[in-house]
Simulated assay, not measured.
Amino acid sequence: MIMLIKRLAMTATVAGIMLTSATPAFASTIGVNNSGVAAAADFSWLGQSTIAGAVLYVRDTACDNNDVYAKLTLYTTAGGPVSSGTWINSSGCNTRRVVNLGTLSVAGRLTGVRITACINDFPPDTCVSSGFLDNPNT
């Protein structure tokens, strides 16, 4: 009987460690808008170097014949910022482009992200960037 109690206590302790050592996923949304363009991204933080289920949206909110574009920038402790690429919406007035970015991982720790939305109007393009969104796992 004592041996069974010791095994149950050991199992409970191991289970407790396994539960507390797992890194939780935190769902996040980041967005920005300016006259003529709006952009947002939804994703989940997974640990210190990955976001998963990332979806980027870029909307043309003006009827001015200018394309709009957006990019999600990941900031890391190794090698500086990493861009998700530039995603253009050239479909016109009040249209939205949806881009499935999937899982994005970086070398080192992912400290946070920022989204930038731009209007392709004249050099330099009119751009607006969000504030920095910290990774809750770092």
Score class of each variant (00 low, 15 high):
138 T>C: 13
70 A>Q: 02
103 T>E: 06
77 T>V: 07
118 C>P: 02
136 P>W: 05
55 V>P: 00
95 T>H: 07
94 N>K: 14
77 T>Q: 11
34 N>T: 12
90 S>V: 04
125 D>H: 15
17 I>C: 10
1 M>N: 13
94 N>E: 13
2 I>Q: 14
106 V>F: 06
74 L>S: 05
63 C>L: 09
62 A>C: 04
1 M>D: 14
42 D>I: 03
14 V>L: 15
31 G>S: 15
126 T>L: 06
40 A>E: 05
95 T>M: 06
37 V>H: 01
51 I>G: 01
124 P>R: 05
27 A>T: 10
6 K>D: 10
79 G>Q: 09
66 N>L: 14
53 G>V: 12
15 A>C: 12
42 D>P: 00
77 T>S: 13
64 D>Q: 11
83 S>R: 05
29 T>A: 02
126 T>Q: 03
14 V>C: 15
3 M>L: 15
76 T>R: 04
66 N>T: 11
129 S>T: 15
127 C>W: 11
14 V>T: 12
107 A>C: 05
71 K>V: 15
70 A>S: 05
54 A>M: 00
100 N>R: 11
53 G>S: 07
44 S>C: 06
87 W>L: 09
95 T>G: 08
110 L>T: 00
134 D>N: 11
109 R>G: 04
127 C>R: 10
99 V>W: 02
40 A>R: 00
62 A>L: 05
15 A>V: 14
123 P>T: 12
109 R>E: 07
115 I>S: 02
129 S>K: 11
20 T>H: 04
